[in-house]
């Protein structure tokens, strides 16, 4: 059964339709949320605190029972995907007890538990998978360290290695870039791109608005429901972000006089206290990324002039 599922993951598909979640204490976290993703893709999950990001994650892992709607992975229920070890979860660093008496090796080996025997004795295949994963995130030399003895960036990579060792195809990352140096961020993004190439669906929940357009192909804007979803360039508009975040984001609007008055350009910066998302002329798109996307820019210009009329 497991093998057939993995064959199907060539075109891995995640579908969330009409999802509503009400917790037992009466809190309504999500309603009518719908979107779908097909592998390989990197999708940013963006929304203010309490917008239902973690509830959505929990639904994709089958931890909460939806009060409405359904999540399917490859057309089947989440439970079957979990049994086939398709879903891997990389927790937020704040949720991990770093004083726990486990080594880096132990943690990555935990990724294999789902496919190990009753007593969880590591076989050769398991040890090889752990070694390969550790080498991929450059932590092999640190395998015997207690997890608290690692640097911030290394700590993030341990749990990424665990997801690799598990062989997950739908990988959920919760705030992978908080408190991480630029170098580690780069390394993580490179790894995520490799996983995308191999057909995985990677869903990244993040506050780091500025980095989303850089590495996410798609984005889902969330605030108690899905406000917008699709290619990042079309989702990440000033209008959509304002709708999702309301007044939560800091706005810095630089008038012409602040920048350069002679060529008539102005810059607007929006940030959720992480790397800022910069809106220049024609929406968010850094100049280095503009090549080959002229049609998108034309489209935006057209809409902008229409809006002005």
């Amino acid at each position: 059964m497991t093998t057939s599922f993995h064959d199907l993951t060539r075109g891995l598909r995640l579908e969330v339709s009409g999802l509503g979640v009400v917790y037992a204490n009466g809190h309504r976290a999500l309603s009518g949320a719908s979107f779908s993703l097909t592998g390989g893709t990197i999708c940013g999950l963006v929304g203010p605190n309490g917008s239902g990001k973690s509830t959505l994650f929990k639904s994709m892992m089958g931890f909460v029972r939806p009060s409405a709607g359904v999540v399917t992975i490859n057309g089947g229920p989440v439970r079957e995907a979990l049994k086939a070890q398709v879903v891997a979860y990389v927790p937020q660093a704040e949720e991990v007890d770093w004083d726990f008496p486990v080594s880096v090796w132990d943690v990555v080996l935990m990724g294999r538990y789902g496919s190990m025997n009753f007593l969880r004795r590591a076989r050769l295949a398991d040890r090889l998978a752990v070694e390969e994963s550790l080498r991929r995130v450059s932590l092999w030399e640190f395998r015997d360290r207690q997890i608290g003895e690692l640097s911030g960036g290394q700590k993030k990579r341990v749990f990424l290695a665990r997801a690799l060792a598990q062989g997950g195809r739908l990988i959920l990352l919760d705030e992978p870039f908080t408190g991480v140096d630029v170098q580690t961020e780069e390394a993580i993004i490179i790894l995520l791109r490799e996983l995308r190439t191999s057909g995985c669906i990677i869903v990244v929940s993040t506050h780091n608005l500025g980095s989303v357009p850089e590495f996410c192909d798609q984005a889902v804007l969330l605030n108690k429901t899905v406000l917008a979803c699709g290619p990042t360039a079309s989702v990440f508009t000033e209008q959509n972000l304002t709708a999702a975040f309301g007044g939560v984001l800091r706005h810095f609007h630089f008038e012409r006089s602040t920048i350069q008055s002679h060529d008539g350009r102005s810059v607007k910066i929006m940030t959720d206290d992480e790397r800022p998302l910069v809106f220049g002329k024609d929406g968010h798109l850094e100049y280095k990324d503009r090549e080959g996307r002229e049609s998108l820019i034309d489209e935006r210009r057209r809409r902008e002039t229409e809006a002005e009329r």
């Binding site: 892992m61 070890q85 789902g114 598990q166």
Partner: peptide
């Protein structure tokens, strides 16, 4: 003692245990 690995995982990261369908 026979189930110590699973119990330890439960203490360490219950979500991961659930994601593995344990």
């Amino acid at each position: 003692l026979a189930r110590r690995r699973d119990l330890l995982l439960l203490c360490f990261d219950e979500r991961h245990a659930r994601a593995l369908a344990l």
